[in-house]
Design a protein around this nucleic acid. Sequence first.
RNA 1: GGAGGAAUGGCAGAGUGGUCGAUUGCGGCGGUCUUGAAAACCGUUGAGGGUUAAACCUCCGGGGGUUCGAAUCCCUCUUCCUCCGCCA
Length: 426
Amino acid sequence: MLPLQTLREDVDRIAEALAKRGLDARPMLDEILELDERRRSLQLQLDNTLAEANRLSKEIGNLFKTGKAAEAQALKDESARLKETSKTLGESLNEAAEALQQALYQVPNTPHESVPAGKDATANQEVHRSGDHPQLGAGALPHWELAKKYDLIDFELGVKITGAGFPVYKGKGARLQRALISYFLDRNTAAGYQEVQVPHLVNEASGYGTGQLPDKEGQMYEVGEDRLYLIPTAEVPVTNLFRDVILDRAELPLKYTAYTPCFRREAGSYGAHVRGLNRLHQFDKVEIVRVEQPEGSYQALDEMVAHVQSLLEALRLPYRILRLCGGDMGFTSALTYDFEVWSAAQERWLEVSSVSNFEAFQANRLKLRYRDALNKTQLAHTLNGSALALPRILAGILEDYQDETGIQIPEVLVPYTGFSRIGGGD
RNA sequence: GGAGGAAUGGCAGAGUGGUCGAUUGCGGCGGUCUUGAAAACCGUUGAGGGUUAAACCUCCGGGGGUUCGAAUCCCUCUUCCUCCGCCA
């Protein structure tokens, strides 16, 4: 949610920035300003009414104390009338405030100046591409075939237990996955991110805090009975750690990393592109989250990008980095870099990380503030990124590291897996 | 699951119908003193709305109610604590 303050001060710039998302926000923004105007005018009327009522109450109290109960009665009547007025005003005010809130929820974050305009993925900018692409011989297999051949992942078994998109990892497949989680957590920790373990179900307030609600409830699994949601990403519980918090400047930046499973309904996406590990309802991800002062948030974003890049370099997977265009960016983001790994057997790019700066958009909903140099409370900036999402990394490793007789394990993972090869041909 | 108790400012902890956004202590910040620091003393110190600035309004876990007036009384929800039961 955009801070109302900046909206009041800078509508033109905001409308202009939102145009990059292919959105004509002007009517929406004008309506918000009108609702805000209305809200404030009602607030003023209510405040004045309450002030008068407060004054009367004190007077009545004094009259009673000095034994002039008779005089008090007239004031009581007046007070009752004010109460009626304030009740009506209060209702109107609530309506106006609610309408304003709803309207504000509809406005996505303003893209950063470096974000290219565009309405879909074709307008994304490739900002980096790694050098080496493995050349696979004829007979190279996609990862779902490899998973079957070496008995690493059983998709059908998952269908039996739960449904499509809930794979069962087995043997070296399971071990490789655990190795990746440990490796990522260790690297993130070494880079100064504190490891946390967080709940995998969150309440409604948390969903609103990071912006999954009210717009994207369809994406989350809901546990109806208790009004809880299975997390679609660790971003939700980790960022909400700081909901309703006022931090000291000295505490910033905050850097956290968490491994969690992620649950996504992914309604309506079926077909060849979702085969195997390409798109799942449950998958594992290691996330990094930062809370920053506004001045430092873009440098932080750069650091996160460099860090994720170093993970992919270490795994020696071919990758590229995209700067997402306005239309392809998430609702809450101001600037997003996507990382994609080249899947040699499928001959396509697979998204393995998304690193974003949300500026004050989430912080505004979260009421995540800090005291600036003048000791004034200000909204902090939040950022997060995957470091990394597991399934497609696993897919990339299986496909890109395969040879005729098996799959080589990336060197940095061997201490974690305890084996250096899947299949034969040592 | 059953029975009791509790929720107040960064923390501790007063406050059971009126001038209480709230006594006090600790902590924080500023100052006096000091070569410097500590101690002592003085001052200051919640959040949001609103205003050029003020005035003013709201907030004592959340929501609702009683009353001219609620931190204080009533209802309800949530959370925590104690005891009992159950349990990895």
